[in-house]
Design a protein around this nucleic acid. Sequence first.
DNA 1: GCTTTTCTGTACCGGCAGGTACACAACAAG
DNA 2: CTTGTTGTGTACCTGCCGGTACAGAAAAGC
Lengths: 197, 197
Amino acid sequence: MGRPREFDEDLALDRAMNVFWQRGYQATSTEELMEAMGIGRGSFYNTFGSKREVYLRTLDRYLLLLEEGGPYRVLFEREPGVDAMEALLGSYLDSVASDEGAHGCYFVHVAKEHRGDDPEVTAAIRRGIARMRGIIADQMRAAQKDGALPGTLDPEKAALLMMAVAWGAHVLIEAGIDKDEALGATQTLFELAPSPT
Amino acid sequence: MGRPREFDEDLALDRAMNVFWQRGYQATSTEELMEAMGIGRGSFYNTFGSKREVYLRTLDRYLLLLEEGGPYRVLFEREPGVDAMEALLGSYLDSVASDEGAHGCYFVHVAKEHRGDDPEVTAAIRRGIARMRGIIADQMRAAQKDGALPGTLDPEKAALLMMAVAWGAHVLIEAGIDKDEALGATQTLFELAPSPT
DNA sequence: GCTTTTCTGTACCGGCAGGTACACAACAAG
DNA sequence: CTTGTTGTGTACCTGCCGGTACAGAAAAGC
């Protein structure tokens, strides 16, 4: 009973995520936020409580997207192995350098801006990292089963290394380094990588 | 002629850098800034003009520190080669995880916060990146001369890869990943690295 | 000791931030 | 058609932000 909602909560959150993604948390005013979400002040505070709550909700929501593996499609479309990893990194750097709409991983943007205050944000990022790392590590384990990667490699460590390279390249590109240059540099990693045993 | 300054400009800038380093640009209010610098509003605006100007000055100043190579001491204390690179990364991650005062590279903090607006900041970061990359690449070239690294490696690419790993690990650690775990992951890079030709 | 010039301290300003208050609108139940 | 409940729109509040205005202080030149 009572008056029904005039907007879709999830849709509004998606739009909020998009704004945070492109403009960052701090730089986004509540007014911008509400306009992007398509709702007014009343609905905003009545439904979500605060700007920060909305932020946390978008973090949860992005984790959901990760659970479904969406952003990692490139990885699953290939045989597990070095090539798949290289393709993942390549397509990621493409998305970082893309200038249309939200680019790169949302969690990277969030982590970049995050300054260690707000433990809930920290926790959300850590969940995201764990998930991404797990996906990559699984693929590496599969590659090892196929003999496409040496069994001596620690999949969890290697996965975190992959993420460090991707995140680092992301920051470098946003700092003004040319995408292809960054890509070239990261490919050095795969030149080092041992060929199939 | 005229009344003499009552403070040291460079010292004030060093203190400003320290505040930005620990708290970030946006989160630092002019009041905090002036207090840390040890000067009042009048002197602040009379001398520097604006918060942003101070920020830019600190970027120039940090580049100066880089020119002198200070932060890369670890690198010069060792024979050029894989071990030196590993030591550099290790000591860098130590400094990132250190909780006393400013930690990690100032430019990384700046790049993390930077959103591509303000071309002067972009330019300053790029100068910093070029300098750091140059230092590392030079060491790699020296290692190649000694035969401690294979000549097939492109030093400029390898240097940028090193930076991507370091920056990525920096972001990951600040995002809540344990330092030793990050260190372990980055060491995977050196396991891959070919031994002396 | 007066003037000129530069520096310093403080009072103040407009603007915008995130958030609240509250009157009104839209439904369900009876 | 009334009542209870929930959602919506708008006016408004407090607090802080970066920055300015300006009176006075401290030197140098004469």
